[in-house]
Design a protein around this nucleic acid. Structure first.
Length: 574
DNA sequence: GCCGTTTTCGGCCCGACTGTTTTCAGTCG
């Protein structure tokens, strides 16, 4: 039972309690505990075994007992008890926009509606509209919500949303009434997938801004529009919320609408302790005196006795305490990345030649580049046999001669076979500059076997990087299951770095595990996993964001090293 | 259910919008 599964159990308890109309603070206690578990830097099994669970903030006596039972036996009587009589379909109903626990419970009690299908039917024959507290509009909104849920599952990749959000921001910048405008919300925090885009505007003329949004040519339909907030659906389906505040409130509002929700709650708590009340407009002294001028988020955090907390860290997973103690790390920046290793070419499933990728990397200012096509076992990707790897050398050598300013390493992304062996002969692997070892097949292997598979692969002397360890594809398939502790132990022992894959659909390892990897002292390697020239910079664009969310600084990442040190200390060449 | 240098009880973040009401509950972020 790993941290993610335990987190899921706590969240399920919170949802069930919410549906049952339990005291909201009790519900919140379980939600807080779920977050606390999610942000642990150790395996929860270790904490339970060493009886250190109660030291975790947010986990008290009662939850500690439940988690001990859960981790030790894999079961939890309390959950089974409260689950009794709660149809699983109610959780799907909660995901419909506008549907919360209260409405869900009313529909269940009054109409015996217990899943999306029966909810849809109840809306279509008008039973929902006839209920007290509901009406025609609620009913139509629920139907729209169900349709949208089915269409997109509600979330999109960050990379798919950013261009739309940036275009709208650029448009609003040109509107006369707009003084300041910025992206907020989970998009600003760098979440891997987002539900919608939040845009904040500072203006003295809110109606003009609302009108400008409604006039935007990218708008498909209007979801709602009030005096200071307008929600629209853009062509392409993305929902965007635009809010307007007075320019004097912009910094407080930007902080507020950036979230996360949990971070805001904690920040307000801190403000209360220090004699302030914090809302999205001002930091109000409780004694009724005039609120201080807050021109930037930096100033807001400083007022509360905190070092500035970057948006990427705002998840209420320890960053506030660290900011208080001035112990936040200096986060890695895109420009810190000196070179990248994980790059494909036409030799396997890439779109460009070796030379084209090298030229592009040089143009982007990289000091070194590793060519790493797929290996033999990845035949779906036209993986390279030992013979073809040797043949590729000439082309790599030619690119080196043509581009002397950038150092080109010749490597491979080799497959980790089911038994943990690497799929090319040892002498060939040893002759290369580096090897990235990745799992591409049998991703759903049983946990114990997958752990052994990875540990064995990391012990191969030629392996330098473990590629996309989770094997997930965002919004498509989940992560492989294995135990992190033995894998990280092996990585540490053999000096292998764990990849942070910058492919927008992978982002793997993810930020939660990056924190664990760092805590263990294992190094990271930020890569684009580029299959074309256009994706070559994805390590700086996407992997860096994921690493920052995992609290990584340049010192945690091997490919921030200058060329000579990277070559000598990490690749162990020459 | 959690928490505590006003500590073992009595708090627990705050406001906008919507749809339903005629003063408010629910949802959202």
């Amino acid at each position: 039972m790993d941290n993610r599964e335990v987190e899921g159990v706590l969240e399920e308890i919170a949802q069930i309690l919410e549906l049952k109309g339990t005291n909201t603070f009790k519900v919140r206690a379980y939600q807080n505990a779920a977050r606390a578990v999610a942000s642990l830097e150790e395996d929860i099994g270790v904490l339970v075994a060493e009886k250190r669970l109660s030291k975790v903030r947010g986990i008290g006596k009662s939850i500690q007992e439940k988690l001990t039972e859960l981790v030790q036996s894999g079961e939890l009587k309390y959950l089974e008890e409260i689950r009794e009589g709660i149809p699983a379909g109610l959780f799907d109903m909660l995901r419909v926009p506008g549907m919360g626990p209260k409405k869900t419970k009313v529909l269940w009690d009054e109409l015996q509606v217990s899943d999306l299908q029966s909810l849809k039917a109840a809306c279509e024959d008008g039973r929902v509209a006839s209920l007290k507290g509901f009406g025609k509009k609620s009913q139509d909104k629920i139907l729209d919500g169900i349709a949208h849920l089915a269409e997109t599952a509600g979330r999109r990749l960050r990379s798919q949303v950013l261009p739309f959000a940036n275009a709208l921001v650029a448009y609003l910048k040109e509107v006369d009434a707009v003084e300041r405008v910025d992206v907020a919300g989970s998009l600003r925090r760098g979440r891997e997938t987002v539900k919608d885009a939040d845009i904040l505007v500072g203006s003295l003329d809110a109606p003009a801004v609302m009108k400008a949004v409604l006039d935007y040519e990218g708008v498909d339909s209007v979801i709602g529009s009030g005096g200071t907030k307008t929600s629209v659906r853009l062509k392409g389906g993305l929902q965007v919320d635009v809010r307007v505040v007075k320019p004097e409130s912009f910094a407080c509002a930007l902080a507020y609408f950036t979230g996360s929700k949990e971070f805001n709650i904690a920040l307000r708590q801190l403000a209360l302790e220090q004699g302030y009340s914090l809302n999205e407009y001002f930091l109000l002294p409780r004694d009724g005196s005039k609120p201080p001028t807050i021109p930037t988020e930096d100033a807001l955090h400083e007022r509360l006795g905190l070092a500035y907390i970057e948006p990427h860290l705002r998840e209420n997973t320890g960053e506030i305490a660290a900011a208080r103690g001035r112990k936040l790390p200096t986060l890695i920046q895109p420009a810190d990345v000196q070179g990248v290793l994980h790059v494909h070419t036409r030799w396997s499933d890439g779109a460009q030649s070796v030379e084209e990728m090298v030229a592009q990397a040089e143009a982007l200012g990289y000091a070194y580049l590793g060519i790493s096509d797929h290996s033999e076992a990845a035949d779906y990707a036209n993986g390279l046999s030992a013979e073809r790897v040797r043949a590729q050398r000439d082309e790599v050598e030619a690119a080196r001669e043509k581009h002397p300013k950038i150092r080109v390493f010749h490597g491979i992304e080799a497959d980790i076979l089911a038994d943990g062996a690497i799929d090319l002969p040892d002498d060939l692997l040893e002759s290369l500059d580096f090897v990235i070892a990745s799992v591409h097949m049998q991703l759903g292997m049983e946990r114990e076997k997958m752990t052994q598979r990875l540990v064995k692969a990391l012990g191969h002397p030629a392996v330098r990087v473990l590629g996309h360890p989770l094997g997930r594809k965002l919004l498509q398939r989940g992560a492989s299951q294995f135990d992190w502790e033995p894998v990280l132990d092996a990585a540490l022992e053999h000096g292998v770095a764990i990849e942070v894959n910058g492919h927008p659909r992978r982002l793997d390892a993810d930020w939660v595990h990056i924190r664990r990897i760092r805590a263990k002292g294992v190094k990271l390697c930020l890569n684009p996993d580029a299959h074309s020239m256009g994706a070559l910079d994805d390590a700086r664009t996407y992997a860096v964001v994921e690493a920052r969310r995992g609290w990584a600084s340049a010192g945690d990442v091997v490919n921030t090293l200058p060329l000579e040190r990277f070559e000598r200390e990490f690749l162990r060449l020459g």
